[in-house]
């Protein structure tokens, strides 16, 4: 049984359709990503899963229950966008207060150290930086030992180092068996963390696959760039069935093709005793896949 099962979810605000028809399911123990441009319906979908919004159509099940079921509040940890704490509450007070909400909270000291908030326990929420608020919010989502963690824009506002630390932390909680639903618009984050990704645009799931699967789906094309150690007859390369096109950039050669391109090119070069200096293989990234699927880049 999937941990989260969303079927034909629909949500409208007046004339605006925030989610038209969203269907996906998340299996136990995976990190499932929801990727999509701004306004695609990502947050609406996770807020409905978190029980904060009532679907206008379709069904959602979380751990076999309806999202509004109060029993889920204990089992699902949520980190939301634009949801804050009172300005005058300190970090320690927030952690202690949220601990009291749950029957079996974790010892938050280690978590807070991992998140780099150890020095900030006496600081009031209003005095924290955006990144620190974000990290506290992550800590509060995990404090009740959830079976499912819903994290909306996990690392927005974090510096690159904190972002990487946070990724390690999320991998750590997945390794302890927590199922993670992650909303993001960072390709690097999705590629690094997610086992599977649903790409949402205009309120529907337009693709659902592993990160590698998404990349392979949009493009099987590869590019090799190198500097040949001796003059190179282009025909040697264009005759190969794997090669589609050869371009010259000054002393460098760029070969575009598919399949076992690298293998084919390097063996031809070896046969003619040409050494390929500064050899680089470029493959399509999740970024390229995203642009091709949605027709626009993820980041503004």
């Amino acid at each position: 049984m999937p941990v989260i099962d969303v079927r034909n979810f629909r949500k409208e605000y007046g004339a605006t359709v925030a989610a038209a028809d969203v269907t996906f399911s998340v299996e136990r123990g995976e990190i499932f990503g929801i990727l999509g441009p701004n306004g695609a319906g990502k947050s609406t979908t996770v807020e409905a899963i978190a029980g904060l919004r009532k679907p206008d159509g379709g069904t959602i099940d979380v751990l076999g229950r309806k999202p509004a079921d109060p029993a889920l509040r204990r089992l699902v940890g949520v980190q939301l966008q634009e949801s804050e704490l009172p300005d005058r509450m300190t970090v320690r007070e927030a952690l202690e207060l949220f601990s009291a909400f749950y029957p079996d909270p974790i010892d938050w000291h280690e978590l807070v150290r991992d998140l780099g908030l150890g020095e900030k326990l006496k600081t009031k929420f209003g005095k924290l930086s955006g990144g620190q608020k974000q990290r506290l919010s992550i800590a509060l989502a995990l404090i009740g030992r959830p079976e499912v963690a819903i994290l909306d824009e996990l690392t927005t506002g974090l510096d690159p180092q904190s972002r990487r630390d946070t990724w390690d932390l999320i991998e750590g909680i997945r390794d302890r068996g927590v199922t993670v639903l992650l909303v993001t618009h960072f390709m690097e984050e999705a590629e690094r963390l997610c086992d599977r990704i649903a790409v949402i645009d205009h309120g529907t799931v337009i693709a659902l696959d592993t990160p590698a699967g998404l990349v392979a789906r949009v493009s099987t094309e590869q590019r090799i760039r190198f500097r040949p150690s001796a003059p190179l007859n282009e025909k040697l390369l264009t005759d190969l069935p794997e090669v589609r096109e050869v371009r010259r950039h000054g002393p460098s050669v760029e070969v575009i093709g598919t399949g076992g391109l690298l293998q084919a090119v390097t063996s031809v070069l070896a046969t003619h005793q040409i050494i390929a200096a500064d050899l680089r293989l470029e493959q399509a990234s999740l970024d390229d896949a995203f642009v091709q699927l949605t027709g626009r880049p993820a980041e503004d």
């Binding site: 978190a50 029980g51 904060l52 109060p70 509040r73 204990r74 699902v76 949520v78 939301l80 634009e82 949801s83 804050e84 704490l85 009172p86 949220f98 909400f101 749950y102 029957p103 509060l140 009740g144």
Partner: peptide, 17 residues
């Protein structure tokens, strides 16, 4: 202020209603 800043929404996702 709590409603405007999402404090109540945050609470709604915990066992403390």
């Amino acid at each position: 202020t709590y409603r405007e800043r999402g404090v109540l929404r945050r609470m709604a996702t915990t066992p403390a209603s």
